[in-house]
């Protein structure tokens, strides 16, 4: 099995030579098709990690290799979704979802001629996330949870090999969040996509991921890697099992001590 993402000994410093070191000696690997979650104390460089993998930042030291290539510029095989759905209010939900296709090089040339095919694909994605028939609505006509679902569609429309999620459910209420966990779980099961989820929510990390990476306080590096032993498909009920809570509890302890060490 090949690694889709491979980060080796990466240092990333902001603001010149005397600036703050965001991550130091960061090393981790994500296999193709794997679901990895990254947790850690706040300010541990989780967002830096996102930006390194997507090529928005180029590290001062170390190697970032995605899909077998050194990352030296933004890589369009990645889809991103943030906590803020950042839908463009002047576009319908469908047009928002089609936006990446107007940007990504290999799609933008065919978009005009093959519009119907792409629209069909977008409609299908909307159906998958439970937003069937909402394509013609404007984002401000959707609730926060629905906007986040549309945001996922936008991140997936150009068929990325890697989906990077930066606390995508942080601003939602508990029930909506659990619903969306299931959406992500099913997306991961149905599509051949590798997912890296950055989150503060330990239950979310354990429920969704194959492995959980615990990061240290700044400068961030990976302290430990946990395999999540639970079989797939997972039901929401397992979040109330003792074994599940033991894993969450252990992660909590590790992050608490990482905070104290800072």
């Amino acid at each position: 099995m090949t690694h889709l993402v491979s980060i080796e000994n990466v240092d990333m410093r902001y603001g010149g030579a005397s600036g703050t070191l965001a991550v130091a000696g960061l090393t981790f690997k994500v296999d193709k098709g794997e679901f990895a979650a990254v947790v850690g104390p706040s300010g541990c460089g989780k967002s830096t990690l996102m930006r390194l993998v997507t090529g928005l930042h180029i590290p001062q030291a170390g190697h970032v290799i995605v899909a077998g290539q050194h990352v030296t510029e933004p890589v369009s095989i990645v889809g991103m979704a943030f906590q803020n759905p950042s839908m463009l209010p002047w576009r319908t939900t469908l047009d928002n979802i089609l936006l990446p296709l107007e940007i990504v090089e290999r799609h933008r040339k065919r978009l005009r001629a093959h519009k119907a095919e792409y629209v069909e694909k977008a409609e299908h994605l909307l159906d998958v996330v439970g937003l069937k028939g909402f394509g013609s609505k404007y984002p401000w006509q959707l609730s926060g949870g629905m906007q986040q679902r549309a945001n996922l569609c936008r991140a997936l429309i150009h068929e990325p090999q890697l989906l990077m999620l930066d606390e995508p459910f942080g601003a939602l209420d508990a029930f909506t969040r659990e619903e969306l966990w299931c959406v992500i779980r099913d997306l991961h099961a149905a599509q051949d996509v590798t997912i890296v989820l950055v989150t503060h929510d330990l239950r979310e990390a354990v429920f969704l991921a194959d492995k959980v990476l615990v990061m240290s306080a700044r400068p961030g590096r990976v302290l430990r890697e946990h395999r999540v032993p639970f079989a797939r498909p997972r039901d929401l009920e397992i979040t109330y099992d003792k074994a599940f809570n033991d894993v969450v509890h252990q992660l909590h302890g590790e992050i608490a001590s990482a905070r104290r060490a800072a």
Partner: peptide, 24 residues
């Protein structure tokens, strides 16, 4: 965030201006 999402897809400055900046 919007800028990050688009830049990660390989958007140039002109793309971001035309798709987001000017309508906004």
């Amino acid at each position: 965030e919007t800028e990050d999402v688009l830049r990660a897809l390989g958007a140039r400055k002109l793309d971001i201006m035309l798709k987001v900046g000017i309508p906004r």
